[in-house]
């Protein structure tokens, strides 16, 4: 076997952890969204690894759906960022406390 499945899963876990770290450490909403992309890529990686391991195409199809949903998420997320920036220029994640009770 060319690629050991354990290595793929470990890489996926490491990338997901890096994405979580980025999401928690960033103050900028766009960079937080980018961290989410890193996490989604890690998930796709593990789906492809399992698909290879179990010789089952469903993993790849699911990864395709994940990519499509990621594209939708980017569209809505960046639309939100633009709307936010129009109302409050230069706002970071820490400034968005309007819904806080």
């Amino acid at each position: 076997m060319i690629v050991p499945v354990g290595a793929v899963l470990g890489l996926s876990a490491v990338l997901f952890g890096i994405g979580v770290f980025g999401f928690l450490a960033r103050r900028n909403i766009i960079l937080m969204l980018i961290s989410i992309e890193v996490m989604l890529n890690a998930v796709n990686l593990s789906l492809a690894g399992f698909s290879r391991h179990f010789e089952d195409l469903r993993g790849q199809v699911l990864a395709l759906f994940v990519i499509a949903v990621a594209a939708a998420e980017v569209g809505v997320g960046l639309g939100l960022v633009i709307a936010l920036n129009r109302n409050k220029p230069g706002a970071g994640a820490a400034d968005l406390t309007k819904l806080k009770w």
Partner: peptide
């Protein structure tokens, strides 16, 4: 990651990764 997809035998996923992502 697209290269790793290729090595895992997921060519279509690799192409989608490059084109879409």
């Amino acid at each position: 990651v697209a290269g790793i997809f290729l090595m895992l035998g997921a060519e279509f996923l690799a192409a989608v990764q490059v084109i879409v992502y």
